[in-house]
Each structure stands twice: as structure tokens, then as C-alpha cells.
Write a protein that binds this DNA or RNA. Structure first.
Lengths: 231, 231
DNA sequence: GTCTATATGGGGATAGAC
DNA sequence: GTCTATCCCCATATAGAC
């Protein structure tokens, strides 16, 4: 049976550990212990810690991105050559990510924290993991948005896409902040509620009128003298 | 001289290292080496790696938050009891964060990456660091927004504040994604350009009309069989 | 205050029995 | 495929000379 595979248990445990403590913070020893397996078993199945990490990410990222492209295809087919509504583009971009929470077992939901962290990581490993699989989605989304917001200069569109992706990544990775700031009134675990509110929020930002091209203000030094130091 | 203090050089080196590699990824050895100092010196000045990290964060966070509260005070004084424009609240919330990039030496700009990372971290240490100093800002901003958007139910306001903070945190931490997705057309180092575009983007989202209170849709299972697992 | 030297532990990885 | 035992390195932290 596949579900109780040592391999699968290792992936699940690694997903939880990496999500909670980051790549460096999690140790192979704790991962294998929590999986009820052995240090050597992990190396047998994955070869190295790095390769285990890659496998953890790929397991979620691949279906997630397939789903995003599928929704984009569908929306474009419905639009039959015309522009696609911003809301539909956003649905394709964010819903498959957020829905990963409910998709599989418990550890799937904490994967999103990892996903959030990965978005602005800089090492070569992370670039390879993130930019490869996500490139196609970004390109497709950018093209669709460009057709739907033809009045926006490309530069401005790029800024707004950047804001959009950043919001999605951060919100997807959140597990406690919303509960905290709302005093328990709202919960990040309300996936459909998040999607239903996030899409109009982002759509409004993407559609907002273009401000006058303000001249780049002079440096605008801060009032305080440039002290350094600390405690 | 203070700027070339061993203490200050250690803080600067630690800021760069923690920002680039995370808390666990950075080592005291590399930090002290890059500071042109010694392992023991770091322990003499800060006591432990954890305390060094706390000092790194506090050095930027304290003036940043003072400035945010100051801008908020000013805006509220100008409004003389009336509601403050959303744009002014957002300016107080995000500008002091983003302007940290130019504020002090080179290492200040990479601090923002750390700031972004901290936003949804879960350990006790991080909660203490983040939630303490940021609590007052959040509370003040929430109150101001509530007065400026009185038609929004508190729940909806909390969701939108969550989106706003998430966007700010992610955008502040970015160093490469914008360049990457725009093909070099836009740059994260354009601090004033970021502020000038981010504020209207968020303001539009915050002001967007309330959607009909859709009934919580039925669970909406994905097409693929719900294989679970995880334990 | 700053150094060298060292104590102590935990990390990833592997060999080889079963 | 899975285990135990072990290698070897690098981590944080400290003692004690200067």
C-alpha cells in the first residue's frame, strides 16, 4: 500500500518539519524519528537532505501548477479569444494554492508555509526549485492580465503582478497572524473564505486608476540623524 | 568611534548573514569572520546567538515602529478627530518599513528580508520579537481604519488588514522577484517607486465594495480522489 | 575587550549486517 | 528495504591568557 509507505511517511514528516523550522532548522534525525523510520532509510530513499527537500516541494507543486494552468486554459477557452475577467485569472492563480490546504492529509496544509517562504529565497537551490515550475504560470498569467488591462503600461502591470504574487504567497503561508490580529474572529483555515475575499481585494488593486506619473521625488532624507547602534 | 565598533560590525555582519541564510543557516563563525572579529568577541558582547539575533532585529525595528507611530499621530492630528484618509494610514504603515532600505548602511536594506521572514514564523522566540513591538502599530492602524471605513464589518476589516500586512511584508522582503518577473524592467531597490504604487494598490483593495455575503459554499472537493495520509 | 584553545554536542552521510 | 554503528565535520559556547 502506498499510503503507509516508509517513503510517504518520510515525505510527510519532512514536510511538517521543513515547514515548521525551515530547511536548516529541521534535522534528518528528527524527520526520520517522527516518521517512525531510520536515518539510513531516508538516505536510501532520497539520497540526501537536499534531495528530500526537493521531493517534498515537487510533490505538492506539480499538481498545484497543473491545476493553475488547467483553470487558466478553461477561462481562456470560455473567453474565446477575448479578454478574461481579472477575477478568473486570479482564481486560477490563487485558488489551487490555497486549496492545497484541504487537498491531502494534515501535512499538506503546512506545506503552504513552505511555499510562502520559498517565494523570496535567494540561494541557487531555491531558484531552481521555484523559478522553474512557476515560470510558466507567471508567464501565462502576465499575458492574460495584459490582455485584460490593456490600458496599463507593461511596467505598471509588472509592479501590480508583483504585489499580487506577494500577497498570495504571504497569505497562503500564514497560519497564525490572521487569528492573532482579529482576536480569533477570523481564521486562516477558512480556505474558501480567504479565496472569496482575497480575489476581489486583489482585483480592485489591479484595476485601480493610474496615478499621475509623479516625478521621482528627491531622496527624502529622514528627519533623524543617521545614528546606528542598539541596546 | 562608534561606527567601527566591534559591536556594530558584529551587528552588521549578523544582519547580512541572518537575512541571507536565516537564523539556523547562518553560523556564528561566519558572522564573526566577516566582521573581522572573533567567535569569543561575539559571545562577550551578546551572550548567545539568540541574543545576537534579538539585538539585530531590535536595532531596526524600534526606530521603524517609532516612525510609524509618529506618522500616524501626525495624520490623526491633521484630521482633527475626523477619519484619516486610507492613503495616509497606509503611508504610516508601509513607508517607514520600506524606507529602512536607504536609512542606514548597506546592511539595513537586507534587514527587510528578515522582516519579511519574521511575519509568519511560529516559534516562541519569534512571537516575542514580532508581536510585542508590532502590536501597538497594528492596534492603532486597525482603529484608524475602522474610523475611515465605518461601513465595513469588523470581520471584513480584519481580513483586509491581514491582506494588507501580508502584502507589505512580502514586498518589503523581496530583493529579486520583481526584477525577475519584469525582466529587469522594474527594481525592488526603487523604494519610492514601490511606495508610490503600493499605497494606491492597497487602498483600492481596502475600499473595494463588499461582495454579497455568499453562503459558505459546500466543501467543494477537488476532482482528484481525496487520498489522505499523514498521520 | 580581544584573542587562542578547547569542551561538548549534534549535524549529514555511509558501511555493512540482516 | 530497513536497521545499528560509526565516521567526520562543524556548530555553539566557554576558559583563560594577554
Amino acid at each position: 500500500m502506498e499510503a503507509n509507505d516508509t517513503r510517504t511517511r518520510l515525505l510527510d514528516a519532512a514536510e511538517r518539519a521543513f515547514s515548521a523550522k525551515g530547511y536548516d532548522g529541521a534535522s534528518m534525525r528528527e524527520i526520520t524519528a517522527e516518521a517512525g523510520a531510520n536515518l539510513a532509510a531516508a538516505h536510501y530513499h532520497f539520497g540526501s537532505k537536499e534531495d528530500l527537500f526537493v521531493a517534498v516541494v515537487a510533490r505538492r507543486m506539480e499538481p498545484m501548477n497543473r491545476e493553475r494552468l488547467r483553470l487558466l486554459d478553461e477561462a481562456e477557452a470560455r473567453a474565446a479569444g477575448g479578454p478574461v475577467a481579472i477575477e478568473e485569472i486570479l482564481e486560477a492563480l490563487v485558488a489551487p494554492v490555497l486549496r492545497t490546504s484541504d487537498a491531502e492529509g494534515a501535512s499538506a496544509s503546512c506545506f503552504l508555509r513552505l511555499f510562502g517562504r520559498l517565494q523570496n529565497e535567494e540561494g541557487e537551490l531555491w531558484k531552481r526549485i521555484v523559478n522553474g515550475p512557476l515560470l510558466e504560470v507567471r508567464t501565462r498569467v502576465a499575458a492574460a492580465m495584459h490582455r485584460s488591462l490593456p490600458h496599463l503600461p507593461k511596467r505598471e502591470l509588472m509592479w501590480r503582478m508583483h504585489f499580487t504574487i506577494g500577497t498570495m504567497a504571504n497569505i497562503a503561508g500564514d497560519q497564525h497572524r490572521l487569528e492573532l490580529i482579529s482576536g480569533g474572529l477570523c481564521s486562516s483555515r477558512d480556505v474558501e473564505g480567504t479565496i472569496r475575499r482575497l480575489i476581489p481585494f486583489l482585483a480592485a488593486g489591479l484595476r485601480s486608476p493610474l496615478g499621475r506619473a509623479q516625478p521621482p521625488r528627491p531622496p527624502l532624507k529622514r528627519a533623524r540623524g543617521a545614528r546606528s547602534r542598539s541596546r
